[in-house]
Design a protein around this nucleic acid. Structure first.
Lengths: 336, 336
DNA sequence: CAAAGTTGATATAACGTTATACCTAGAGTC
DNA sequence: GACTCTAGGTATAACGTTATATCAACTTTG
């Protein structure tokens, strides 16, 4: 069926042995100008491309890095992917993406597929509640791994994350400084570690300023879900004037709901998001947020996995990058 | 360095030969209950996962399908990916994604990487102006290919597309029926085939109704670009009351610009988009659009590549799916 | 002119797996 | 007891590539 040209075909056409053909194409060994030309021409004509399965079996690791992330659809993730790809491709690596949809079965299948295909390394956002057995699997295969955003409880892998607690402290403090005291933490789903860290930042500031019991409100990472959650929240707690959000997408959903309720974000209720996706700056009113540079985050990830590949014995390393406050229109002084 | 467990290790641990171990794990041949158990246990303990490079070299094609698309970040594409993955994964295939960023060099590298890695098949959105040589490359390797959205001029591959001309005819007719006559085609970049098809639909209706010269306005597929393009368009042609857009994203950008200009989409200017992304329904005012079900489109793509894989000799097949009009708030009667 | 180098090419093994052919020991048959 | 048969297992080749060792044909050298 599939009958791709192989080195044998190139060699035949050029009238040399496979060994010679290989040497020409690899640029190794001693070969005369004459045969070199003939082989190269033959390879061109046949559109020869080496079979990486054979190459990597014969001589070491594959220059292919994989990423397993939760949702390709999320624009923040897409930017991260760009950052990773640009750097790694410039070093001759291929980057391929799998979407785990935050589903444990799917993640398991994806990981096994990864190992089966002998990817060179893995950049990975572990799904919530990933079991110990997955760590065993990865360690058994000595796959170079960098976790991303979410730290994996059972594994000791390199990690690149965001200073979640500090970022949310800054965000919450921003609202407090504007005079707000009835502030809720909005969005994300229960028991997700990253969110827990962020909530810790939120409660820290609430406590430090003596501002009553924390209010935590769930919402899936999706604009529609954010909108509905806000409608529900407002019904139950109409006294709230400040929203610290788990992400820009839910924040925008919440703003949308407010407008439906005849409330003006930034005036009636202040809202601050997380990520600084493109829509944040373009929305009306424009969304205040904690900005993370996803493209640079991608670069950092690429650097980290490269370092691990080159120096497998280096101690495990964690890096956290800071988020910066971008105050736009959805946060404003509390009206008396 | 990397030292993953191999069949040899499993065999040693179970005290049998590699051949036997292989047969147990594959479930072929005749093996006693006793040894079967021992081998399986050993495999478990060692977290053995077969090396697909070796497997697929030995016995046929790889169950891995790749996709090369323009922009992972586009939410429409992300939905398509979901549709493809869900179906193919249920059949035991792995789906991996590459982002070509519509860049010819990058696309070339991605394709060669694909061939090097001997993927089983390819779902591909060809970049604009992809040269003949790429078709030669693909045919030389007899790679099963389905093109998607954009038809590739030089290749004869299966294709899944959208009825672009008909869809835009419907969209334009919708505006005409509402009384508009100064209608522009908005968004997309020059010389892109898909856009040309759509523009044909637009000009058809303009001509059929005797409505002056067509007005074509470029804008990259990006909300910010759409916004800026609309500002420019309005400066030059303030008389325009209808916008047929190349995509929802630019359409939303245009609506945003209108609001900045003090114009109300659906009242002062009617706007119709393309794709029906989630934000279209959630925007204020909500965006009228030509809806395509991206998830189903993904399913269709998956079906098509599977058929091609199973029956390599079937004649080349093209399928076009229709888009349906979703009239929301941004299209309204022309005010006298 | 024999010994030693040099040049340009090739034969061969190995990577991890599986399909095929082959082997051995015991059971059944006459 | 010599025979076939079967159950249960193993040795081996092959997939496409490359690194190593090897080889043949000249060239140089003393």
């Amino acid at each position: 069926m599939r009958n791709r040209p192989k080195l044998q075909d190139v060699a035949n056409r050029a009238g040399v042995s496979v060994a010679t053909a290989s040497q020409v194409l690899r640029g190794t060994g001693r070969i005369s100008e004459n045969t070199r030309k003939r082989v190269q021409e033959a390879a061109q004509k046949l559109h020869y491309v080496p079979d990486d399965r054979a190459v990597s079996m014969r001589s070491g690791a594959k220059k292919e890095i994989g990423m397993i992330i939760q949702r390709i659809a999320n624009p923040f993730n897409a930017e991260v992917i760009s950052g990773v790809s640009d750097l790694l491709e410039s070093k001759g690596y291929l980057v391929s993406i799998l979407d785990s949809q935050d589903d444990l079965d799917r993640q398991r299948r994806n990981l096994e597929a990864f190992i089966r295909n002998s990817r060179g390394g893995l950049i990975w956002v572990p799904s919530q509640d990933t079991p110990q057995s997955v760590a065993d699997l990865l360690h058994a295969h000595q796959l170079p791994v960098v976790t991303f955003l979410r730290k994996f409880a059972f594994g000791t892998f390199d990690h690149v994350g965001i200073e979640n607690r500090r970022a949310i402290e800054t965000a919450t403090q921003h609202l407090v400084s504007l005079g707000h005291s009835k502030i809720a933490y909005f969005g994300g789903e229960a028991d997700v570690d990253v969110r827990q860290e962020r909530i810790r930042g939120y409660t820290n500031i609430m406590k430090a300023n003596g501002l009553g019991a924390p209010i935590i409100w769930d919402a899936a990472d999706d604009k529609l879900a954010g909108m509905n959650a806000m409608l529900a929240l407002h019904k139950e707690r109409p006294d709230i004037t400040g929203l610290v959000c788990n992400g820009d997408v839910v924040a925008l959903g919440a703003c949308h709901a407010m407008q439906k309720l005849g409330l003006l974000p930034g005036q009636d209720i202040s809202v601050i998001g997380f990520d600084d996706i493109q829509d944040a700056g373009l929305a009306t009113p424009s969304l205040s947020t904690m900005a993370v540079r996803p493209y640079q985050l991608g670069h950092l990830l690429a650097q980290t996995i490269l370092t691990r590949l080159n120096e497998p014995n280096l101690p495990v390393n964690s890096t956290y990058i800071a988020a910066t406050l971008v105050a736009r229109e959805t946060t404003g002084k509390l009206l008396a």
